[in-house]
């Protein structure tokens, strides 16, 4: 997905994990994924660079779709789609 496409996505849930470092964002993402439905898109806000690499790994393992990430000022928006 292009940066513009990512920015235009309609997200069902936004997880603001900027207040926590690794592995905090992953833990918050794990908790949040249970609250959305299959097919929903979730964004994770993280100031932790490692999380940008970790979330795709988590998606691959859990069978979710990693859509991409956008860099904002001082943090990242990481997008994923719940597949099951």
């Amino acid at each position: 997905m292009t940066q513009d496409e990512l920015k235009g996505l309609e997200v069902a849930k936004s997880v603001d994990a900027r207040g926590t470092a690794c592995p905090g964002p992953l833990l918050e993402a794990k908790k949040a994924i249970g609250t959305i439905s299959t097919g929903d898109i979730m964004e994770i806000l993280s100031a932790d660079e490692g999380t940008r690499v970790d979330i795709p790994k988590w998606c691959t393992k859990k069978g979710h779709e990693y859509l991409g990430s956008v860099e904002e000022s001082g943090f990242f928006k990481i997008f994923m789609k719940k597949n099951k």
């Binding site: 592995p23 794990k30 988590w58 393992k61």
Partner: peptide
């Protein structure tokens, strides 16, 4: 604990 939590988060 960091590794344990990351692993647990990945189920």
């Amino acid at each position: 604990m960091v590794i344990a939590l990351a692993a647990a988060a990945m189920d």
